[in-house]
Simulated assay, not measured.
Amino acid sequence: MVFESVVVDVLNRFLGDYVVNLDTSQLTLGIWGGAVVLKNLVIKENALSQLDVPFKIKVGHIGNLNLTIPWKNLYTQPVVAVLEDIYLLIVPSSIIRYDPLKEEKQLLEIKQQELKRIEEAKQKVADQEKILAEKQDTFTEKLITQIIKNLQVKISSIHIRYEDDITNRDNPLSFGISLQNLSMQTTDSNWVPCRHDETEKLFRKLIRLDNLFAYWNVKSRMFYLFDVPKFN
């Protein structure tokens, strides 16, 4: 099925850009089997480089990533994505010790990603032109739209922390946000979770946040100084 290839491509591209040493072959097998289970994913230090910000990730990981795809019942059952235990410790780029070999490797990765995106963009243009020329049926587009309508996303235990003892060495600061649960479900007109009714033109998504809080500390302890920072 064409959609299976689309899912493989999107997840490989997204996770490959941000996750260290991703086993793409295992990921692909999981997608084709209908169940992806990945554990202890380490987020790349330069994952924020595309945003062009003067920050880097000192520590970042995703405890669990589960994706369930009901290939035989895509029109009646939801695709469920579950992420658990997401932690990011972000610091100014100048804090991280310069490593020329590591920097060269990261720059090479960025260039390779850009070249890959350019080639993919060219291929997409060619594919679109081919579709327009042949006036093919939009079955795949309809299927993707239906899956988006019934997509369920659940994220639990998120903590993002920023530390800075460079801007003001006498008053090192830290701030962050933490969220216990975030979920997104399709609902009916009364906001009751359900499968999307294909007869309705509109579809509704209910987003729920549980126990969201933020903090800001001065003269704060700098967890990034530890070999294995633990701040959750």
Score class of each variant (00 low, 15 high):
S157N: 15
D164Y: 05
N64Q: 12
L202I: 04
L108Q: 04
I158V: 01
F3K: 02
L27H: 00
L27T: 00
R208K: 14
V79R: 05
V80Y: 13
I144K: 11
I177Q: 07
L209E: 00
K122C: 09
Q180Y: 12
A81G: 03
G176I: 04
M222R: 07
Q185G: 07
K102C: 11
T140P: 13
Q180D: 10
Q128I: 10
N21W: 13
E141F: 13
K116H: 12
E198T: 13
Q113P: 05
T145K: 11
D23E: 09
V228K: 15
R13M: 15
E4S: 10
S220D: 07
M184T: 03
N46D: 05
R161P: 02
N232F: 15
L29N: 12
V19A: 03
L27M: 00
P172H: 05
E45M: 07
E163G: 00
L179E: 03
A133P: 06
N217G: 09
L132V: 08
L107A: 14
L11C: 02
L38P: 01
T68Y: 15
S94A: 14
K58Y: 13
E114P: 09
K111Y: 14
S220M: 09
K219Q: 07
F3M: 07
I62R: 04
F3G: 01
E103W: 04
L74T: 04
N190D: 04
T187Y: 06
